[in-house]
Structure formats: C-alpha cells, structure tokens
Design a protein around this nucleic acid. Structure first.
Lengths: 248, 248
DNA sequence: TCCCGTCGTTCGACATTGTCGAACCCCTAG
DNA sequence: CTAGGGGTTCGACAATGTCGAACGACGGGA
C-alpha cells in the first residue's frame, strides 16, 4: 500500500468530473478522461450507484451525481463551526445594510460560499451556498488571499469584466492594501454594476479562517469610484463580532 | 471481486456516519461503529482527507466532513433536471400563495428537499435544501409515498406532534385518499401551528418523480380542520405546470 | 507526580481485493 | 443490413488494501 487508497481516490475523481458540468457522462467518456479501462470504471461506478453517490440515467445509461451527495453537503453546513457561529451575524449584516450578505472560505484556490443571506425585500435571488467565486475577482476572495498562509499559487486570473484585475502584480498590490487597511472592495470586477465589500474573520489564534461581506448595486454601495464607508463599517463590525464569538 | 468495491463502500459508510451528527468522530469511534480495525479506517480516512471529502481537526485529531462535499452537493442541484425545470414555477407558487414553496423527492425513506423558496417578505428563514423531512408527517412525503412504486417499507412512524399519524393503518387510509384526489395535506402533524399542502409531479411516462407544495401558518392556510381550497389549487396548478414542462 | 487508559498513527506480512482487456450485447446511424 | 459506439460482463493475475500488533502522545485520576 502506497499511502493512499487507489480506488477511493479514483471514486473521488469520478465524482469531481461528474460535478464539473451539468452534462451526464458515460463510462467510455470517463475512461478516456481518467485514462483507465472501461471495466475498472464500471466497477467503481456500480459501487457509487449502490451507495447513492451517483445515479444512472435510465434512458441513456449515462451517469450523474446522486441525491445522497446533496444530503452530505448540507450536513457539512451543520458541522462547519464558522458557519453556525456566523448565521445570526450574517442576518444582522444583511438587515443593517439592506444588501445580500455572504460568508466564504478559501478552498482549492476558489472562494467557497458557505452562507448567503438574501437581500431583504427582494425575492427571485438564487441561493449561492456551495458555489465558487473567483478569488481574484471578489471581495471575499481578496480578503482570503491576502491572509492566506500558503500564498496559494494563483490560478490564471480570468477576466470577468473590463475592470477585473488580471495582472498578478496589480493583484499583489491590491492585496497589500487589503492587509494594510483590513478590508477589501471589489468594484464591478466580477459583474458589471455590482460592488462587494468584505472583511476577515479570525480564529482564536489570529489565523484568518473565512471572510464575510456584502454585495449589491454600484449605485447603492459606492460613491463615484470609492465604496461608501458606512457599508464598510457594517461589514467590519460583523467580521469583528464573529471573530470575537469564535474565541469561545 | 464480489460485485462492489469494498473500500469505496467503506469510505461511503464513513461519510454517512460523519454526516449523521454535528459531532466530530475519531478513528477509534468509527472503528467501533463499523466493526473494522483502526488501521484500516485510518488508511481510508487519510485518502478521504487527501481528496477533501473529510477534514481533520487540528486540535483533537478527530474527523469531520470536508468542504468539497458542499461543492459536490450544490453541483447535484445543477444536474437535477426536476429541480432546474421547477425553479420558476416554485417562485411563482410562492408568489401567488405568499407562503414558502418546497420541492422534494423520496430518498432512502425520507423526503429530500431539493428546492425551497422563502415566504415573500419574510426574512430570517433558514434554507432547508438538502435536509430530510419525515415522509409520513409531511404533505410532500404523503404524495410521494402514495405514488411510490416500491411501497417503500415505512420506517417507524415517529410522532412529531399530537396529530402525527403513527398508526400504519391510518397512514395507509390517508394515502388512499391522496391517490384518489391527487393532493395531500398535513395539518399540524409535523410542527404545531403549521400546515402544508402538496401535489405530485410526474415524468413523461406518468411516474411520480417528485412533489411540490407550500407550508405556512395554520390560520392562513386552513379553515377549521380543512385546508383552504384556493391554496390547494395554487399547488395543483404548479404541479401540473411542471409535469407538463417535463414532457419536453 | 506518576500511571494508566485512550487516542491517532505506523508498520510489514499476507491473501484478499480490485484491476485489466477482451469479448458480449444492445442500440443507433448510415 | 452493417459498422461503430454505447454500457456491461467475465476470469486470470498480481497489485492492492487489509489486518493486528506495537508505538508515541496526550490527559485525567489518584
């Protein structure tokens, strides 16, 4: 035995592939992507189907993710201490700012959204919990990158709007600023017309374990090129409150 | 090889145990629960940690679910065709009824919530997507049980309120009624003061693949002991609309 | 302070376990 | 009707994961 169980790793790789797009994948397709024989993959898939992690389309025989994963994912939310501790503060932040509130953590180079409160009095928003935001093009991401202990080799800085920071040097200078002043802003760098603010949440040892912020229309959150400072304080207040409550 | 990969199955069992409660579990604890040697479990856990499905607590060395699962779970939502097709209708149903709207499927004897729209103009609700409702004590569950092809051996009928149906015979009669009239009601059988209504969603072959419904305060949704029929039509309209749209 | 029990972890021999590729059947397209 | 691709099955092989004992660290009780 090396030091890691091959079949389990392969099963995980299959799940990740299935999750990478809404398309159903067939045995042959997966075999090509992973460079494994079809028979091998079939065995793993059969097992994954049995435990409910994968479902097989009755019509085409192709495979997709299974419902059990949805349940496991929502169980993760219960386990995540940062999230459970932050629920009330995120609600309060959304209430004070009257904007949508977000909590995220760094995960595999992206920002994983672990909580999301809709903007008050505004329906028709889709919940983003469990989705990724680009780290370099979101306020949450800037906060997390700025305090990331590993420097987390940045993936290619994909442009999302004309204002997205795509130059590594420019991003680095921005992160310096974030570290210096303790909060981050993202001015229409992810979606035209949207602005986001965020501040770091720290554990008792001072390590940044997450970020909380808000996102909303540029005309409400910004004044010219700069964010409105009242919203910055809302966000920083919330971050400080959560940091304090994490100190047991 | 039997017909299923042992290590993958064991990995899944570990994940399910970790998901069964918010408590962190140690190697020894898992070994006892699964009746396996500690060393074996450690190998699987190490692999699960590597792929991000499990995280190890730095302080205690115990294990909990990992963030990757949250992302996989939310990917499932994108893949689920029933859900993506129903999003707009659920929004519309919540809007017309001014109550929270729910969509669920039967999964391992429970109702798995795959979509949930908050009640309009009412914040401070927590999202229930990915959680289970008891099948025998919810309107969604009654609809799904009534049309379940396998008869799905009912787990023990746990009481939630004084009005929960705990007698298998009574439940069976209720299901007969649901089948006959095409919709289900749940009158304070899960939570005191709350009433729910639901109707079946069918695929092109006529098989029930899910249910949609609403849930709200008894004083709004019911009139004495009976549900208000206007809400019943809202729900049935939505269910029919989705059924129709599933016919491509 | 010491000791004991428990925890997570490591290790190496063993044989169980999963791997692999060819062959199979079914379906669709041409 | 054929050809090609899909998902699936099968059995021999050896690579693979399993197992239990032993290790070091931690922590609570006396």
């Amino acid at each position: 035995m090396g030091d890691t169980i091959q079949s389990v790793e392969r099963a995980a790789a299959i799940l990740r592939l299935l999750a990478s797009g809404p398309r159903l994948l067939g045995v042959a397709e997966l075999a090509r992507a992973l460079g494994l024989p079809k028979g091998t993959l079939h065995g793993i898939l059969r097992t994954l189907v049995k435990v409910g992690f994968v479902e097989q389309d009755a019509a085409t025989g192709k495979y997709r993710l299974g419902a059990t994963l949805l349940h496991l994912g929502s169980s993760y939310l219960d386990v995540n201490e940062l999230r459970t501790r932050s629920l009330n503060w995120a609600d309060a932040l959304a209430g004070r700012s009257r904007e949508s509130a977000w909590i995220g953590t760094l995960h595999e180079g992206h920002v994983l959204v672990i909580h999301h409160v809709f903007r008050p009095d505004d329906s028709m928003q889709t919940l983003q919990v469990g989705t990724y935001l680009p780290a370099h093009a979101s306020a949450l991401g800037k906060v997390l990158l700025a305090h990331d202990p590993y420097g987390e080799a940045a993936p290619p800085l994909a442009p999302h709007t004309g204002r997205t920071l795509v130059d590594p040097g420019a991003l680095e200078r921005e992160l310096d600023q974030v570290r210096a002043r303790g909060w981050a802003a993202e001015m229409e760098e992810l979606v035209e017309g949207e602005v986001a603010l965020a501040a770091p949440i720290k554990d008792p040892r001072g390590i940044v374990v997450g970020a909380i912020g808000i996102r909303g229309a540029v005309e409400r959150l910004a004044d010219g090129d700069a964010p409105r400072m009242e919203f910055v304080s809302y966000v920083r207040d919330a971050a400080r409150a959560i940091t304090r409550s994490l100190a047991h």
